[in-house]
Simulated scan of single mutants.
Amino acid sequence: WRNAMLSVFCSPNRYTQGKNATGVLGQEMAGLDLEGPALIVAGKSAIRQLTDTWKTTLADAKIEHVVFPFGGECSLAEIERAKTVARQHKAQVIIGAGGGKVLDTARVAASDLALPVVNCPTVASSDAPCSALSVIYTEEGTFQEYRFLRKNPDLILVDTQVIAQGPPRLLAAGMGDALATWFEANTCVAGHVRNMRGGASTRSALTLAKLCYETLLADGAEALRAVRNQVVTPALERLVEANTLLSGLGFESSGLAAAHAVHNGLTIAPATLDYFHGERVAFGLLVQLVLEGQPQSVLNQVLTFATEVGLPTTLAEIGLTQLSRELLERIANRATAKGETIHNEPFEVTPDMVVDAIRAADDLGQCWKKQN
């Protein structure tokens, strides 16, 4: 009884989303007793679009702030640079504003300094913002490690007006990340394996993961059209919530499986680094479905959706046009490394099985393209 696995559900303290939400950032922070000075770790487009709004909203809440321009990679060196600037300015809170790597950097820096953190994603390109987890990469962009943090962010603030101005491809990449959530969560729950916080999943987490998948199928294509036209629509609002909140809660509180492990393996191939996290995850999901021997009806549904929103379904579409046997084996070895989430599958997974599944998934995608 004492060794029984407890169910653990984790989530951010508050999630706020909507058009022009940046305008209430100071008010939201004040409402949560978050005080300045604030260090804003920010990507280029966030600085370009939001500098004036930050000045107004944070001044209204009497929160002093300084901006730290993000260097481009969530690496240990970049995290240390952010921490140094935070100490210099005696920051009492760290705000991350930008894409997934910006937010990952802000979360680790805040955690190391024992400071509260606010995440303001400017793209809905991954499910990172809500989690107490950051993905650390080398300076060259190869996956290095998952860093587990003590707590989830204090505030997530998603401005859909900003997201509507972003590249449509980034929104689609977020759908690729979110597409895997339900399948990975389902595998973990069925196998009674531990989630990202070391506990069992709750029914609510699995239900949110399922809602995430259903929302993608229902609203994905229409949300993508909204971003192409740079407009905020109800479909975009629902889709952004799926990419950010539902996927985030689903993966962290239910768990990851083969799709993300294959993604991590793919990052050792330099050619894949020109592609986004969610694009590599989308192909990783096909590999997972092949590994698990999922029925054709499931594969068809995933392939139909991926094609509709422009997600990769072949190796060529993530840069691997010439894939040598040696590189394929290295990818498979990395995907099956000790501690990888592929070992959450309900059977033993060997590198050889992954090699076969990658080739089969690629063939599946190619045949699908010819037929459709």
Rank of each mutant, 00 (worst) to 15 (best):
S75I: 14
S75H: 12
L76T: 13
A77N: 10
A77L: 11
E78Y: 06
E78H: 06
I79Q: 03
T84L: 12
T84F: 08
T84D: 08
V85P: 01
R87H: 08
K90S: 13
A91C: 07
Q92K: 15
Q92H: 09
V93C: 14
V93W: 03
V93S: 07
I94C: 02
I95P: 02
I95Y: 02
G96E: 08
A97V: 03
A97L: 04
G99W: 06
G100N: 10
V102S: 04
L103C: 09
L103V: 08
L103Q: 06
T105I: 11
T105N: 02
A106K: 02
R107C: 01
A110H: 03
A110E: 08
L113C: 06
A114P: 00
L115C: 04
V117W: 03
V117I: 15
V117T: 12
V118P: 07
N119K: 02
C120K: 05
P121F: 01
T122V: 03
V123Y: 09
V123R: 03
V123A: 12
V123K: 00
V123T: 15
D127Y: 13
P129R: 02
C130F: 10
S131D: 09
A132R: 05
L133T: 08
L133V: 13
S134P: 07
V135A: 07
V135E: 04
V135H: 02
I136M: 11
I136Y: 05
T138S: 15
E139P: 13
E140C: 10
E140H: 13
G141R: 11
T142K: 15
F143E: 11
E145S: 10
E145F: 00
R147N: 06
R147I: 10
F148D: 00
R150V: 02
N152E: 10
P153M: 09
P153D: 11
L155V: 07
I156M: 10
D159F: 12
T160M: 09
